[in-house]
Design a protein around this nucleic acid. Structure first.
Length: 103
DNA sequence: CCGATGACTCACG
DNA sequence: CCGTGAGCCATCG
């Protein structure tokens, strides 16, 4: 099934909102959790559209990196700051696997 | 309809 | 550790 952009946005927003503070999930992980077929790329685009409505800083790349920094370095440092505030360490600019949200 | 693009990911060397 | 290249697929011009 191919959900409308609105439904897809809702589904992604809901998954992202479920990531507990102090934990992170990768774009691909979120893509697997939504109730319809999705890819990491799509999730990235939806995150951009949801900017501000969800804890977007808890979503990182599969390697713990922050691809958002490529789009806007300022967002990258904001993400690192918010994560640090929740107790998530980001040594070397990437989140260690132990902080990944285990479902 | 075609081609380019991108908050991605993975395999290889 | 650091490119490179190939899949990925909704959107946009």
């Amino acid at each position: 099934m191919r959900p409308s952009a609105e439904e897809a946005l809702d589904a992604v927003a809901e998954v992202v909102r479920q990531i507990p503070p102090g934990k992170v999930a990768s774009y691909g992980q979120v893509a697997e959790l939504v109730p319809f077929p999705a890819t990491a790329r799509q999730v990235g685009r939806y995150m951009f559209m949801l900017e501000g409505e969800v804890p977007w800083w808890r979503v990182v790349g599969a390697d713990g990196g922050m691809p958002v920094g490529r789009r806007d370095p300022r967002l990258g440092q904001e993400q690192a700051a918010r994560l640090a505030q929740e107790g998530v360490e980001v040594p070397g600019g990437r989140v260690p696997r132990r902080f990944f949200w285990a479902v």
